[in-house]
């Protein structure tokens, strides 16, 4: 890969390389081997071209005065003894501005660092936007970079797997419909030891409330289901859960900016709510 870069006239080490503890993640280490500068260039320019038509993307680029007043808003910056490379504006600088400056002609190693910055050193919590005198949506910009990384496949393995699961089953942890219904019935039985005649109504049409748990709840944290069943029953709520796929309120597609999966997950929930003629939806996440 290095040969290709040199031929293209791209310096592989002319960007600031961060000194971070190396973390092994197949999602980064393996996919980066399949990348070339041409591939990256193509993806970056495709995403940035969409960005050029977006005011939310362009306005911050032309407004940011590089005052670094956002830095103290970031918990990463404060947690690392005010290391300037963790400041929000620095993260934008090292990722987006660099990609724009080079028009996407960057080496795979650079992209790997970009992916680490946007996925593993930023939570898109929007606190920096609250502390920016201009109210620039830094989270949106880093989200665009996440989108570039996602299309390139440079995503931490765990979250990518969960997104794949969402796109295949509309839940986060590869649960089948049978597992899901089974878990609900099992929990109903468990809670009956404490509270008389507890019901977890599945697919009840016309209920007031549809509850959408997180995929982890039926898989590893069933006590959440038990507690919710207790609360709902004691309060006498007319509630239900959906039997069909689209009961999971986790949306990993949103985190890695896989818009397509993200839309399908949201749509799945609304579809179920419409199908069951639900009045309100309670989403755990």
């Amino acid at each position: 890969m290095a040969e290709v870069s040199v031929k293209e006239g791209v310096e592989t080490r002319d960007w600031i390389e961060l000194k971070r503890k190396p973390v092994a993640d197949i999602g980064f280490d393996e996919t980066v081997k399949n990348l070339t500068t041409e591939k990256i260039e193509k993806v970056v320019n495709a995403v940035l071209n969409i960005g050029k038509n977006a005011a939310r993307f362009m306005a911050p680029l032309e407004t940011c005065i590089h005052c670094a007043l956002c830095s103290t808003a970031c918990h990463w910056y404060l947690s690392h003894d005010k290391d300037p490379t963790y400041a929000p504006v620095a993260k934008v600088k090292m990722t987006l501005w660099e990609l724009i400056k080079r028009k996407g002609k960057v080496s795979p190693e650079f992209m790997k660092q970009v992916a680490r910055i946007v996925f593993c050193e930023c939570n898109l919590c929007r606190r920096c936007s609250m502390y920016c005198p201009f109210g620039l949506d830094i989270a949106y910009q880093l989200g665009m970079v996440r989108r570039i990384c996602f299309i390139l496949g440079l995503v931490p393995q765990n979250i990518l797997d969960q997104t794949h699961s969402l796109s295949a089953t509309l839940n986060q942890l590869w649960l089948t419909q049978g597992d899901w219904i089974d878990t609900m019935q099992w929990q109903e039985e468990e809670v009956r030891a404490e509270i008389k005649n507890v019901r977890i109504p599945i697919d009840k049409e016309g209920a007031d409330v549809m509850w959408c748990p997180l995929g982890t709840e039926p898989k590893v944290a069933t006590y959440h289901i038990a507690r919710t069943a207790k609360i709902m029953n004691v309060a006498g709520i007319d509630w239900t859960v959906s039997a069909q796929d689209g009961w999971d309120s986790a949306n990993m597609g949103m985190f890695i900016r896989d818009m397509e999966t993200m839309q399908r997950v949201v749509r799945g929930i609304y579809d179920n709510a419409m199908r069951l003629k639900i009045k309100r939806v309670v989403l755990t996440e």
Binding site: H75, C120, P156, Q157
Partner: peptide
């Protein structure tokens, strides 16, 4: 948040160090 947990076990140490505040 923002996928911070979901990026998985390899990053746990990194994540906790970033949460010193």
């Amino acid at each position: 948040g923002g996928g911070g947990n979901a990026i998985g076990p390899p990053w746990k140490r990194n994540r906790c160090e970033g949460a010193r505040v």
